[in-house]
């Protein structure tokens, strides 16, 4: 099978064990709930946006190793970024996860997020990695209804 080490890289396991920015945010300007019905992953994402800049970002919830690490690393990648920078990052992340196996994905511009490239070998787990990002989209739109990966 596809190598499990590609999926469960040490960086990912580290973020699973010690998620960064995992807490509620009382002064959030926006938040959204995300849910993956397939595996029961639930996430709540908090944003503090000021003049189009993500000043602070955090999450709470429970999920598998991939979704937890993805949420943790997403918050690290986005803190201090502008909303206009966040959108193409999501698009490149998504493109990496869904690119065909015979096609080398563009991982350079993704920096640390490139550790998730192994997820594309496990198609049923792609939704785990993208759940935090889909929830981010909802939070940016300030939609307070839960998003679903289904």
């Amino acid at each position: 099978m596809s190598d499990l080490r590609d999926l469960y890289q040490q960086t990912i396991l580290d973020h699973t064990r010690k998620p960064r920015n995992k807490h509620e945010m009382l002064d959030a300007t926006s938040s959204a709930d995300g849910h993956n019905p397939l595996c029961g992953d639930k996430i709540k994402l908090f944003l503090k946006i000021n003049n189009g800049v993500i000043e602070d970002i955090s999450f709470t919830g429970s999920g598998c190793a991939i979704s937890t690490a993805s949420a943790s690393m997403m918050t690290e990648a986005l803190k201090g970024k502008t909303l206009t920078e966040a959108q193409p990052l999501f698009e490149r992340f998504h493109a990496m996860l869904t690119s065909p196996m015979d096609h080398e994905p563009d991982i350079e511009s993704l920096d640390k997020l490139a550790v998730f490239s192994g997820v594309r070998e496990f198609p049923v787990r792609v939704k785990c990695a993208t759940l935090p990002w889909h929830t981010l989209q909802a939070a940016i739109k300030n939609e307070h209804r839960p998003v679903s990966t289904e």
């Binding site: 999926l7 595996c39 992953d41 190793a65 991939i66």
Partner: peptide
């Protein structure tokens, strides 16, 4: 360890 990770491994 989340059940989803158990299932994959």
């Amino acid at each position: 360890i989340h059940p989803h990770d158990i299932g994959t491994i």
